[in-house]
Simulated assay, not measured.
Amino acid sequence: MTDIHGRPATELSDEELEEQGAQAHATRNWVFLHGSAEQFARHTTRMLELEREYLRSHPKRTWQGSGGAGGDRTVTADAWRETVLGIIEQLTMMLKRPDPHHDGLPDTADPVRAFLRRIADGGGRLHKLEAHQAAREVGLDRASVADLYKAHPPLISTEGHDRVLTEAGRAHLTADPA
């Protein structure tokens, strides 16, 4: 069985290297939006490994190896500096994320109530990606979220890209949990 990182890029055929590189780029957006921190880190590491090996094996096929980086090394260095600073900022933001168990966020003993509370705290609506993350953070699986839309009456609804707390959802939050 292959480990979670796959075969080392240096052992891949040209075809495998191209296929895995294309797949890494194709899945990047999903991992960025929905993956865990560990998945994102693993994906980034693997993608960079594949890119390094491709550049080593085929330097003339990319702007880095073909001289397409531009004649002004200062401009290129500044662009890379901005990239690295962006990565540092992203990592810093990840470290500042609140801990739902220690920073006063709702108790996740009742994930439905905690999820509805997150929507209520967002002004009664969350963008679908924020709602997806909130559901995951409180331990609410996709089927359970779907049930909130199908309840009679529904506890949440959709309005474009937003997930909206309904009157029934507000009532559920104010009802005695016992």
Rank of each mutant, 00 (worst) to 15 (best):
T76P: 01
K128Q: 15
E89Y: 11
E137M: 07
T108M: 11
K128L: 11
R61K: 13
M94Y: 04
M94Q: 14
R46N: 04
V31H: 08
K60H: 11
G35A: 09
G71Y: 09
L50N: 04
V138F: 02
A79C: 07
L105P: 08
R136T: 04
G104K: 03
R117D: 09
T44Y: 06
G104H: 03
R73G: 04
L91K: 07
D72K: 13
D99C: 12
L105V: 05
R97K: 00
T76N: 01
L126V: 07
T92K: 09
L126S: 03
A79E: 12
F115H: 01
G139S: 03
A37D: 15
V75L: 04
A131S: 10
R61G: 05
I88N: 13
L116V: 00
R136G: 09
A135R: 05
G71L: 12
R125L: 07
L116D: 01
A109Y: 08
G124K: 02
A120W: 12
Q64F: 06
E130N: 09
G123I: 06
A114G: 03
R42A: 15
R73I: 11
F32G: 13
G139M: 02
S36K: 07
H102M: 13
L55V: 14
E38K: 06
R46C: 02
D72A: 13
R61L: 04
P106K: 06
A120I: 10
R117F: 04
A135T: 03
Y54V: 00
M94V: 08
V31C: 09
H58P: 00
E51T: 08
V138Q: 00
M93S: 10
L48E: 11
W80V: 13
G139K: 00
E89C: 06
P106Y: 09
T62P: 08
R118N: 10
D72L: 11
K96Y: 05
E53R: 05
L105A: 15
D78R: 14
T108F: 12
H58M: 01
K96A: 15
M94N: 14
S57L: 09
R125S: 15
T83S: 12
Y54R: 03
H43S: 02
H43Y: 01
P106N: 08
K128V: 10
I119P: 00
G67E: 06
V31K: 11
P111H: 11
Q39L: 15
R136D: 05
Y54P: 02
T62V: 05
W63V: 06
A114I: 02
A37G: 13
R136L: 08
L50M: 02
T62G: 00
A69R: 07
L126G: 01
P111R: 03
R73M: 10
I88G: 05
T76M: 14
L95M: 10
P98I: 05
G86A: 03
A134F: 01
A41M: 04
L91R: 11
D103V: 04
H34I: 07
A69G: 15
G65P: 01
M94S: 14
L33V: 13
G65A: 14
T108V: 14
A134H: 02
Q133F: 08
H43V: 01
M47W: 11
M93R: 13
W80Q: 14
G124E: 01
V112G: 10
G122I: 05
S36H: 03
T83P: 09
A41I: 04
Y54S: 04
T44I: 06
L48D: 11
W80D: 14
